[in-house]
Computed example of a mutant assay.
Amino acid sequence: MRINIVTIFPDFFRDPLAISIPGRAREAGLVEYRVVDLRDHTHDRHRTVDGLPYGGGAGMVMKPEPFFEAVETLNPKGPVVLLSPRGRVFRHADAVRLSLEEEVTLLCGHYKDVDQRVADELATDELSLGDFVLSGGEVAALAVTDAVVRLLPGVLGDHDSAASDSFYEAPLLSPPSWTRPYEYRGRSVPDVLRSGDHARIQAFRERLARELTRERRPDLWAEALRRGLVDGDEHEG
């Protein structure tokens, strides 16, 4: 797989893409990263990538030409994703979908906004991390990259590690985890986890996952109810 990232801060990605799972995936030849400096696709001595907004208002707007020229130079074969607070919220299903692509291109905005023609004519998708605003699309691009790369076959040594994550198959949070020591500052690991009874352990974890989801993510709980993945009587209780 190849992931292209278009940004005015290419140095932002140097270390994060070289360590942990993204770095190991690249070393194993499972993914290639191409980080493109948007300023390399400008044509003035100041390497200008932004301008004043039409109609007035605060802040600067990123110009369309550098984005179009950068993507045309890359000539990508897959989705072109603009990271934007106006985008649809990025979900695990999006990570799965993108992980099946041969190539994904991520466009990082900055300043006040990006010229709307980038979203309308260049991007195939517009995604957001949530209902908050970041200084730029770089953090979001890293989050999307990590979420996608860890799903590639062979990246994680233990597939069950990903399969037991929140949202993997059902819209439920994953249950809490404990490790050694058994007791720490007066709090102990639940005894069922030390019982060796795998059926009881599985039932315990599933119950905690349902309880946490119902309490903390009513939107996910409603989706699980709609899909018949949890019992409506449990919801009432």
Rank of each mutant, 00 (worst) to 15 (best):
Val36Ala: 13
Tyr33Glu: 09
Ser166Met: 02
Glu72Ile: 09
Leu208Cys: 09
Ile5Val: 13
Trp221Ile: 12
Glu103Leu: 11
Ser84Arg: 00
Ile21Leu: 14
Glu27Met: 05
His235Ser: 12
Leu129Gly: 02
Val104Asn: 07
Gly228Leu: 08
Glu183Pro: 04
Val80Pro: 08
Ser161Ala: 15
Asp115Ile: 04
Ala162Arg: 02
Pro175Val: 07
Ser99Ala: 08
Val189Asn: 01
His41Arg: 10
Ala25Met: 05
Val133Cys: 13
Arg45Thr: 15
Pro66Gln: 10
Phe9His: 10
Phe167Gln: 03
Asp191Pro: 15
Val36Gly: 13
Val144Asn: 01
Val31Leu: 05
Asp160Leu: 15
Arg14Phe: 08
Arg2Tyr: 13
Lys77Tyr: 03
Asp233Gly: 12
Arg205Lys: 14
Val104Ala: 01
Arg2Gly: 02
Arg97Met: 13
Glu234Gly: 02
Glu234Pro: 01
Phe12Tyr: 13
Arg86Ala: 15
Asp191Asn: 11
Val149Lys: 08
Gly186Val: 15
His198Leu: 14
Pro175Gly: 14
His46Ser: 13
Ala140Thr: 00
Val49Asp: 04
Ala25Val: 03
Val149Thr: 06
Glu72Thr: 13
Arg86Glu: 10
Pro218Phe: 08
Gly196Ser: 09
Glu126Trp: 03
Asp113Arg: 00
Ala95Arg: 06
Arg207Thr: 15
Asp50Thr: 09
Asp165Arg: 03
Leu152Ala: 01
Ala119Ser: 14
Thr42Asp: 04
Glu32Thr: 12
Ser195Ile: 05
Arg47Ala: 13
Pro176His: 10
Arg24Thr: 09
Glu215Tyr: 00
Leu74Asn: 00
Arg226Pro: 04
Gln116Trp: 11
Ala203Ile: 06
His235Leu: 09
Asp233Cys: 07
Asp113Ile: 02
Arg91Trp: 11
Pro85Asp: 00
Met60Asn: 10
His41Ile: 08
Pro153Leu: 05
Val114Cys: 02
Asn4His: 03
His198Phe: 08
Arg2Val: 10
Gly56Val: 12
Leu106Ile: 14
Ser135Thr: 13
Asp158Cys: 12
Thr7Asn: 07
Ala163Asn: 09
Asp113Ser: 07
Gly23Cys: 12
Asp165His: 06
Arg226Gly: 06
Thr124Glu: 06
Glu138Leu: 03
Ala203Pro: 03
Arg26Phe: 01
Met60Leu: 15
Phe68Trp: 09
Arg14Asn: 12
